[in-house]
Design a protein around this nucleic acid. Sequence first.
DNA 1: GTCTATAATCTGATAGAC
DNA 2: GTCTATCAGATTATAGAC
Lengths: 197, 197
Amino acid sequence: MSGVDWRTRRREQTRQEILDAAWTVARDQGLAGLTMRDLGARVGMRAQSLYSYFPSKHAIYDAMFAQGNRELLARYRAMVADESLARDPRSLLRSTADVHLRFCAEDPVRQQLLHQRPIPGFEPIAGSYAIAVEVLALGRAVLHDCGVTTSRQFDMWTALTSGLATQQNANEPGGTRWLRLVDEAVDMFLHYLRQGG
Amino acid sequence: MSGVDWRTRRREQTRQEILDAAWTVARDQGLAGLTMRDLGARVGMRAQSLYSYFPSKHAIYDAMFAQGNRELLARYRAMVADESLARDPRSLLRSTADVHLRFCAEDPVRQQLLHQRPIPGFEPIAGSYAIAVEVLALGRAVLHDCGVTTSRQFDMWTALTSGLATQQNANEPGGTRWLRLVDEAVDMFLHYLRQGG
DNA sequence: GTCTATAATCTGATAGAC
DNA sequence: GTCTATCAGATTATAGAC
């Protein structure tokens, strides 16, 4: 039972600690400004010791990418599973946009890593990318229940929601100026749907 | 008349050559991946010689930022001055979105530098930033003629158009999957306007 | 598992010859 | 105005002692 012994657990715990610190450093210095030196200092280690937990810096980016996508997937799933949730298209679209925008806006650096790929030379490994694909698939399924049946309609939806998030993060990070537009954006999109867009 | 003598002209010519090369390198290596060494190699100079033309690497980023904004401003102005342009709101919105999206999509790296500020520690100097402000002001004025009178409406417009550009560049750079949605996006937005959004 | 030591390389930038 | 030489420091990563 080596998978659950205390050594393994302790190791996993430290890996998580390092990841948490990596997010903190990246929020401070920018994603590309993350260095093993700073990261080690933040968890009370020398940079070289980090290699006991991650084989490379890219592996850290990759773990962050996977973690972010797992978090978003969990939130979508919690939303779908919520039995108190109204299921009419308007309510469902609002909830979906709300989950997505809150996620994007609460951490611009994470949003950047997950949806803009700003690290030259970094590509997530297949296993991590698969989580991102799952997120997209679930989003598409939920939107389908709202009457979004064509690719064009779905693309319009992602443009609209990601546009609100992008503008918010780029021009007023931490604020709500664009986030507050979500309800009227949903209404606007609903009318577009009904016009057969 | 030192401002127009051949020395000055030649110098300005070389500066421009360096800037052109900087765009090329940045498109290849990413904005953060631009190095003085690579840049020098591309124009047939040692990295150190570049300092005869730009006092620092940041000054190069700054000149690129200013150049990009001047280009966008010129395109907006050309659009406004075009007498063959239809002036009804729908046509005007389409032309505006078209200018903007074409600009964003034809060079994702430029779009990144101008509208996403991905270089940690880089802030354009006041003179360069002023051009960006001018671009925004002109955009606002044009949109006003289309019936966009409130900040909320203008924010919705920028979210919608920048969302289309962002999605296009992030998911299918060089393609037209989201760009092709511009006409129905304009129609969607127009209906939102008329509803008093 | 963490350390010291260090490799090997890249970075932006300066000094001074020509 | 471009060069050589060089600084001073950063970077990721590996080897090996403990």
